[in-house]
Design a protein around this nucleic acid. Structure first.
Lengths: 349, 349
DNA sequence: TAGAGCCTGGACAACGTTGTCAGATGCGGG
DNA sequence: CCCGCATCTGACAACGTTGTCCAGGCTCTA
């Protein structure tokens, strides 16, 4: 192990714990402050010899430019904020990564936070990001009223909403075709002979959940099927209650022969429930899940492209920042039905 | 839709696009600058009446404190950086989220970046974070030489490495027991009668991969089994080559009856390969994977607790920042063997 | 009613950087 | 030998905030 200083050796120091500033570098190199700034920023007008001396001082002192001061002076932070629901959800990982890649290609860093589906926490996070003066925001909203963002928008913070639209303000939004995807998924079940089809989804106050429910209803109506209340479970989300909801549907007076699940977490739970049943109940889920192809039967899903959502939103964000974008717009990305077996099972009765 | 200003209406503005400052608020409220500061920060010494006037001006102007200036003055950014390999990898989502939660409980925001397993990119990211003057860093290293961090450490940037140790510097690190976990996993296969056991892992230059390989060798040696070269595949990582490696092991002169896989991505690919084989080849994988319990057979894994890794590291980071922590240390978290069926299959021959 | 003490509010400098602008230096030509 | 020009360098202000410190007004007491 080389002789790095142990932590105890570090001086208590002032503020950033004793970081050298340009002034220190200038003193050591025997040049003016501004010359150091020029070298650090690669500006022209410095003799090679001077530059060498400055570079030497920088290395010797371990100087690193303080971007906070830079931001204060220049007004751009080269960072964007991403507020999503839960980074641990496999749906958001790729989305976040896609946003990061676009940011990176524009030289920006990504600050992100999880709202945990709590509107207050969303607002708190967004405002904290604004206080840091992020150049732009990508928001997957938890709340449905975003008027608190008005001053920020007015001040020029670029903003794009993803996955769900903004509430009560006019802003860019990038969505999946939740309605169409759900409708197609349910229609797929109907095409395979099902008529008693259950729907288990999240609270309809969440936009995506409402749209998917609407798609379910539309498909059923198109087929002339009257939906019974006992076929629908809205707003349950924790595994235990989803499990009970699924079991109720399967055991009710007119048991369903197929289930359409409204998001990946519900799908996983329902797969568990169906695995315990011997009757072949058909299943189509919204959102793809890993290993879905390896289950018996494979799980048919309506897949949305999380990375594409993130990429599209981030690109739009940077176009706002370029100033090349004017009117807020709504972009809808298509979903894809991936058939793997569970959605093609015939009705059991 | 309420009458929010369309983007085109926003003034081009200066810098942050026209944001009001404390000075503006002070002018509007008819008070001094410092009084506004006091109100914003909840400092005592302001009459309720004055406070009301200031608050009114703040709301009217949509003022939001500029944290860049604040940071410059105070020296703490209340943000920490997290550098990991790929946010889209399901292993890092929970880890990242855990770090975020700890940060949040300390009032800090999380800036994160993906190194894409590229040492240069890791360094670039880390230094960018240091330039932002993050208070601390949680790093999942891609490279094996971190001497570039010496000036930062000396300057007091709290730093904790996770999942893999730092290279050539002395720093805190939080690891899983990769060696012990792998050894136990392989011993489990041996206990079920296997002797010809394959190992497919990442490049041994990656610490975790090397440790797991060491665990494999140790278990084999403990059982008195001489490992044949054709049983090991090191450094393959893309699905196509993993697939070929697995097939070679199964078809070779002394075909393996069980495989130990070195990480989640490899495991998934091997599951696919095995699903196409009718011989019951046993499998134990390092890292848990979602739905592993629903496959036929369920996948036996050596699970590490990603969230615990992140939480432990972040907590240690903040203890460094409190100043209550002195000597750098190495913490090793246990792994857990989760038996689900695939690891308990008897040898087929 | 005058003085002491407390409370509120504001002027000012400082944080570390960059933009502006003017001064210094060196070189070549007249 | 001196002037003009181009090139390089540095002094200074400004960004928006917070810490220090002092002034002024109020209340309370003697």
């Amino acid at each position: 192990m080389p002789d790095t200083p142990r932590r105890a050796d570090r001086l208590p120091g002032n503020r950033y714990g004793n970081r050298p500033t340009m002034k220190d570098v200038a003193a050591r190199a025997g040049v003016g402050l501004k010359t150091v700034s020029r070298v650090v920023n690669g500006e022209p007008g410095v003799t090679p010899e001077t530059e060498r001396r400055v570079q030497e001082a920088i290395d010797a002192l371990g100087f690193r430019r303080n971007d906070s001061a830079r931001v204060l002076r220049k007004g751009r932070t080269a960072s964007i904020g991403l507020v999503l629901e839960d980074l641990a959800d496999p749906f958001y990982g790729p989305l976040s990564r896609a946003v990061e890649e676009v940011a990176r290609s524009h030289g920006a860093l990504l600050i992100n936070g999880s709202s945990a589906e709590d509107p207050d926490r969303e607002q708190e996070l967004v405002l904290a990001l604004c206080a840091r003066r992020v150049d732009g925001l990508v928001v997957i909203p938890a709340g449905d009223d975003h008027r608190y963002l008005e001053p920020e928008l007015k001040a020029g913070v670029a903003t794009v909403f993803v996955d769900r639209p903004a509430g009560r303000i006019d802003a860019d939004v990038v969505l999946s075709d939740n309605y169409g995807g759900a409708r197609d998924g349910v229609a797929h079940l109907i095409a395979h002979g099902h008529r008693r089809i259950g729907f288990i989804g999240d609270m309809p106050r969440i936009h995506t959940a409402a749209e998917r429910l609407r798609g379910y209803r539309a498909a059923m109506e198109d087929a002339g099927i009257a939906v019974e209340d006992s076929w629908m479970s809205l707003g349950v989300t924790d595994p235990e209650r989803v499990r009970r909801a699924a079991e109720d549907m399967l055991a009710g007076p007119s048991p369903v022969t197929a289930i359409f699940t409204g998001n990946n977490r519900v799908t996983v739970t329902v797969i568990r429930v169906l695995a315990e049943h011997d009757r072949g109940v058909a299943l189509v889920g919204f959102d793809d899940i890993e290993l879905a192809d390896l289950l018996q039967p494979g799980v048919t899903v309506v897949a949305q492209d999380a990375a594409a959502l993130g990429r599209t939103a981030a690109e739009r964000l940077f176009r706002q920042l370029d100033g090349s974008l004017l009117a807020p717009d709504r972009i809808e990305l298509p979903t894809k039905l991936v058939t793997r077996g569970s959605g093609e099972l015939p009705p059991a009765d």
